[in-house]
Write a protein that binds this DNA or RNA. Structure first.
Lengths: 220, 220
DNA sequence: CAGTTTTGTGCAGTCACTGCAAAAAGACAG
DNA sequence: CTGTCTTTTTGCAGTGACTGCACAAAACTG
């Protein structure tokens, strides 16, 4: 049956890579998601409680009731549980950019797509604790930065396709990188602002400054 | 002798922190610099030859002819040898920003200061190999990102003092973060450009795009 | 139920990194 | 030169992240 959807189903897949053709209703799928979520929730909770340094992978797994070895079937490092983006979000980003209106400026497309990504992230159950842990332990950014770069790459690829250039084009690269930077600064600003401040507004304001060429704000 | 230059000379200092009052001519000072340099040169060279993954701290120390334990007296992680900034550069940055002309726009001050920092880094003997290793092994950026954040912090602090605001001010933060991003993109672009391209020009062009609000370039 | 595929687990091993205490070596006064 | 103080190097023992491998357990399929 060479015409099957899976040309090479023989390859052993790791639990983390949800095979494309796996039906969402299966028990395996549900268990996999449950395990991943349990590990992430346990880890983030313990990080928040005792500080990331004091928490070992063994602790996390004890709390999630799985074997220590299993942790690394789902996350490549202890701190990866702090990544706010679903793998799917990163993958989708380039496509979302492409399907923005063609007359829209690249920076605006980036803002729109990253805004959606942020909404998705914030709807996750662990978002708040993730953000707090990262705020209180800036060293951990090291371990999370790779996922931001992945998001940036996807963003840049989308922008390149949309503007019919290459992902190596300096302009497109700068827009992508600056957009991610704006995202980071917006979140940081938002975290320190009044509780009723909306993240969407912080993001808008930050991108607005970028559009104004980072000129100094007016004094009154 | 409480009147000495060192009020508390009893504290045990680690070799990495060059005590403020140490005379530059002393044999200790020279040996310390030599050891640090030997370790860095050995590490970067071996990284370039066999790939960072295949090189252990033990290998590095064997090549530099010091004990493995000594490595961690100078660097906090194996990959820290790839940081292009001298610790001094990071420290000086805020001051350099402050001493820029007062009428200069913040983004321009940042460009000027980062340009100098880049010149300093490029004058180092290991710069080229550092850059190549980082280009060929993007995963390692994780371990270097902290030093970029430190540079960013120093930059932001200088900008805040210069514009008489606080380092938490969203505008100042964004300018600092964007400037570092521009630096990164400029270096990346430069690495892929023709060999006669000047890094200074890439930097100028990148900042120029930022000043133009990241508007799309004109089509001809 | 029997066979296949995927997921969980145990085990052994490598290696980065740390604290501690003692050895080695430079600095300095007399 | 000698003894003393300070700084740097080193050895040692330990923790814990992470990996490869082989096998057990569980889920899917017919």
């Amino acid at each position: 049956m060479a015409g099957s959807a899976h040309p090479a189903p023989t390859a052993t897949e790791h639990p983390a890579d949800t095979g494309v053709g796996t039906r969402p209703g299966g028990l395996r799928e549900r268990k996999k998601r449950a395990t991943r979520q349990a590990l992430q929730r346990s880890a983030v909770t313990l990080f928040r409680e005792h500080g990331p340094n004091a928490v070992t992978v063994e602790d996390i797994c004890a709390h999630a009731e799985v074997s220590p070895r299993t942790f690394f079937n789902y996350f490549t490092s202890k701190e990866e549980v702090l990544v706010p983006w679903a793998p799917e979000t990163i993958t989708n980003t380039s496509g979302r950019v492409v399907s923005r209106p063609s007359e829209e400026a690249p920076l605006d497309s980036a803002q729109a797509v990253l805004g959606e990504a942020l909404d998705t992230a914030m709807s996750g159950e662990v978002w708040r604790d993730q953000a707090l842990v990262l705020r209180d332990h800036p060293e951990l950014i090291e371990r999370v930065v790779t996922s931001f770069r992945a998001l940036e790459s996807s963003l840049v690829e989308g922008l390149a396709r949309k503007t019919d250039t290459s992902p190596e084009d300096p302009y497109v690269r700068l827009v992508g990188a600056s957009a991610i930077t704006a995202l980071r600064v917006a979140v940081q600003t938002w975290q320190e602002s009044e509780p009723d401040e909306r993240l969407r507004d912080c993001l808008e304001e930050t991108f607005e400054r970028l559009r104004h060429g980072l000129r100094p704000p007016h004094r009154h």
